[in-house]
Simulated scan of single mutants.
Amino acid sequence: MPTFLETVHVLDGELLHLDYHQKRINDVFQNFYPTSPILNIYDYLAHVEIPQQGSFRARLVYSTQWEFHEFIAYQEKNIKRLAIVNTGDYEYQYKYADRSHLLKKVAEHPEADDIIFSKQGKLQDSSIANLAFKKGDKWFTPKEPLHWGTTRRRLIDEKILEEIDIWETELSDYSHICLINVFRPLSDHHALLLPDAIV
């Protein structure tokens, strides 16, 4: 039985965007545990002591039941250089608790701070985030990402991100790349210049 992970941003005691985490949990149960009652992240966290000051990662591991949780003070990873790697037949559509393959791929590229997965020439995700690419004054995100990211989904719903195929061969069409997740906002300030960021 696979186990899954939700990483929630806790900022000064506030649990951010729980509705999108619940949507992903709903999808996991629909696809993996259709006969089990769906876990409710609101109910679970209502009985947990939440850190009230600072920025924390709330890691919640679950299968058909909640298995454990922990709060880790957030420290941003400094990412400036990205290496493109072949996705192959690896799939990470949902946020599995087992991230060993991702960590192994990152370790294979010491010349970079993180990697970008590319499947048949189409860019997908980094090991820690979904991706956004800027062209002119618009932001685009790969139509076929490696995994279902809550921040990506929210920005699409808010009409801030548009889904398209982003090909390795067309990277020169974009001026910036931004890694987006619950801790990494979409902005010019957090974006990296292209093609300089690719090693």
Score class of each variant (00 low, 15 high):
G88L: 07
T169A: 02
N26C: 07
F32S: 10
F4W: 08
R24G: 09
F133W: 06
F117T: 01
R99W: 01
A73V: 04
Q75W: 13
K104I: 14
K135H: 05
K119T: 03
A46M: 14
R184K: 09
L18M: 03
G88E: 10
G149L: 00
E76P: 05
H9I: 03
Y74D: 07
H17M: 05
D113E: 14
I164K: 04
E158V: 06
H47F: 06
V106R: 12
L18D: 01
L16W: 04
N26I: 04
F4Q: 08
L39F: 08
Y44A: 11
D27P: 02
I79M: 06
I177A: 15
E70G: 00
A58M: 04
I164Y: 06
V28S: 03
A197C: 07
N130T: 06
P2R: 07
R152L: 11
K105Q: 15
A112R: 10
I166C: 13
F68D: 11
K80H: 14
Y33N: 08
K95T: 00
D89P: 05
L16D: 10
R24L: 03
S126F: 06
V48T: 10
Q22E: 05
D137P: 02
F29H: 12
E91P: 02
K23F: 10
H101K: 02
G149E: 10
F117S: 05
R59A: 13
Q53R: 08
I166P: 09
E91A: 11
V85H: 05
P2N: 14
K135S: 05
S100H: 11
